[in-house]
């Protein structure tokens, strides 16, 4: 436990001395402010043009940031030899991985907070921004997306041998999860018999954290009706307070299993030397 805390604190210190973290922070803050500027509506509440755009732009930026920061942090341990030093101490792989995850999660959440904090304050000054519930909903969305993709990044950093490999795989994962997802599903599921499509899409959505978080947020913002009659029961369920707990449970299970997988792989490599 105390080892996990030490690793996390070390990770936070490394994270905030990493110029990458600041360039991502600047990028995220800048683009949150740009969103405010293109928004002519003044006060924004619920699912509308500007919230839809915000969701999509966050989906373009945050997963890639999380994937790169997270996977680089782990491959750096291997490349710089610091892991070899750490592994001579009685430090369990699980403590190491969880410590890494918590430390990086705090760095990412700080980046998100800076962006949203700036947008909240400047939005008030400029008289154009999000109403409280929409603001909190988008903040939750960003944090969840960051945490989801950080878990994937941890697994990726475990598997990849060096920074270059993790960069290549990170970009591939980002492309398929964010941009290639609808074309991929439309192309592959198009061959399936009609009644199979909806259950297949539903099931696959649970595998793509970007899509899962986006849909949860769209429904919570009141836009569920646009997803069509096919998903009516899901929408009704998610809209209740129970839907939020269900989503939180899915997030925990999802991140937990990816971290567990990362721990297994790392442990195997450690034993093999």
């Amino acid at each position: 436990m105390i080892q996990t805390v030490h690793i996390a604190i070390r990770e936070i210190k490394l994270g905030f001395r990493n110029p990458w973290a600041y360039s991502f922070m600047g990028l995220f803050a800048l683009f949150m402010l740009c969103l405010l500027m293109i928004n002519a509506q003044g006060y924004v509440q619920g699912y509308s043009g500007i919230t839809g755009t915000t969701l999509n732009l966050i989906l373009y930026l945050l997963p890639l940031m999380s994937l790169l920061l997270g996977s680089f942090s782990l491959t750096a341990e291997k490349e710089d030899g610091s892991w070899e030093l750490l592994s001579v101490y009685p430090l369990s792989t699980l403590s190491f991985i969880i410590g890494k995850y918590i430390g990086l999660a705090i760095v990412l959440l700080v980046i998100v907070s800076i962006g949203f904090g700036a947008a909240g304050i400047l939005g008030y000054v400029a008289g154009s921004g999000f109403g409280l519930s929409t603001y909190v909903q988008l903040l939750t969305f960003s944090s969840t997306v960051a945490l989801f993709f950080l878990a994937i990044a941890i697994l990726l950093g475990t598997i990849a041998k060096n920074r270059w490999q993790s960069l290549t795989i990170a970009v591939a994962i980002w492309f398929f999860a964010i941009i290639g997802w609808p074309p991929l599903l439309i192309a592959t599921l198009g061959f399936m018999p009609y009644p199979m499509i909806k259950p297949a899409v539903t099931l696959l959505t649970f595998l793509n954290p970007a899509e899962l978080s986006r849909l949860f947020t769209v429904v919570k913002l009141g836009g569920g009706a646009i997803l069509g009659p096919e998903y009516y029961e899901w929408i009704k369920w998610i809209r209740q307070p129970g839907g939020s707990f269900g989503f939180a449970a899915v997030v925990l299970v999802w991140i937990g299993s990816v971290i567990a997988a990362a721990q297994l792989v790392w442990e195997r490599r450690r034993l093999r030397g």
């Binding site: 905030f16 909240g120 154009s128 909190v136």
Partner: peptide, 25 residues
Amino acid sequence: TQTLKHSAAVGAGLLSLAIYLIYLG
């Protein structure tokens, strides 16, 4: 339309917490 004050207040809280954490780091 309601006030943007609330989200600004939450934003200010987030910003100060984030800056404090960076400072600690």
